[in-house]
């Protein structure tokens, strides 16, 4: 009995979380442009998607921002996390405090603070300003995901490698790096996801003429969303869902996930 109730509760929460997704997928097949009227089934929004250059441009901007910001943030964040373990406790606490600011601060404040910075130093708003902003809010995710892995390292392994004649670089790449790699990857994935889903900070740091999918959708809210947007987000969602299922069903992936859990 209790088990049935538990399952019903989980199911209700899932319906709550996934109902909007179902609505968007249904809307992507709706031949009427209205969000509240069903005008019959159609594939036309999917068919027209590739030829819509402004949506494709926004998609490319979104993906390149996510990729670049995730890569740069992963590099800066990972080496910072490695350095933090060798620091005095007071310095480390200070750095962790600063790292937590963008995590705990309101996105609107982070957004306007960066906007003011660019205004004050007369930086032209555009792709670069968004990229700088995305790297900034992504670094903390990388640090917080790499740091726990480094703390679990056995320092003797690194020293043993050096004793056995490895150079510090070789010891690092052969001994330390493989162990922290899962943390680096999950940090990078988190950064990528955060960048893709961001609207608020992009809204304040973008210039005229540059649009990500989020800012493009926001600009369409008043005049009505282009149904091709529903088609595109359904494609993205189904792709990620398929990838997730694939990764979880792949033989041998179980081992990997267990390793990550420590």
């Amino acid at each position: 009995m209790a088990n049935v109730l538990k399952k019903i509760y989980i199911a209700l929460i899932f319906i709550f979380l996934y109902a909007p997704m179902a609505v968007l997928i249904v809307l992507s097949f709706n031949s009427s442009k209205s969000r509240s009227k069903w005008g019959g089934f159609t594939f036309k929004w999917y068919a027209k998607l590739l030829s819509d250059s402004s949506i494709m441009e926004a998609l490319i901007t979104t993906l390149s921002l996510a990729l670049l910001s995730a890569l740069i943030a992963t590099f800066i964040g990972t080496i910072a996390a490695i350095a933090m373990t060798g620091m005095k406790k007071s310095t480390r606490t200070l750095m962790m405090g600063i790292t937590n600011i963008p995590m705990l601060n309101a996105e609107i404040v982070t957004g306007i603070s960066l906007m003011l910075l660019f205004i004050f130093f007369n930086v032209k708003f555009g792709f670069t300003t968004i990229l700088l902003a995305h790297i900034s809010f992504n670094i903390p995710y990388v640090i917080l995901s790499v740091l726990p892995r480094i703390k679990q390292l056995n320092p003797s392994a690194y020293e043993a490698a050096m004793d056995l004649g490895a150079s510090p670089f070789k010891a690092f790449f052969k001994v330390v790096f493989p162990d922290i790699l899962p943390g680096v990857f999950s940090g990078m994935l988190m950064a990528f996801t955060m960048s893709i889903d961001d609207f608020i900070i992009t809204h304040f740091t973008k210039g005229a003429g540059v649009d990500t999918l989020s800012t493009k959708i926001y600009s369409q809210v008043r005049k009505g969303i282009d149904p091709k947007m529903y088609a595109l987000s359904s494609v993205i969602f189904i792709t990620v869902l398929a990838l997730l299922i694939l990764i979880n069903l792949l033989p041998g992936s179980g081992k990997k996930t267990k390793k990550e859990k420590h």
Binding site: L17, P20, M21, M194, S214, I217, L244, K261
Partner: peptide, 28 residues
């Protein structure tokens, strides 16, 4: 192992644009 999947399912919604998801509630 079930949990891992559960957590992933909580992250998965982030892959559908947050503005569109919120707008979908209008339709609902």
């Amino acid at each position: 192992d079930n949990n891992k999947l559960m957590i992933l399912i909580f992250v998965l919604p982030m892959w559908m644009n947050f503005l569109l998801r919120t707008l979908a509630w209008q339709t609902l």
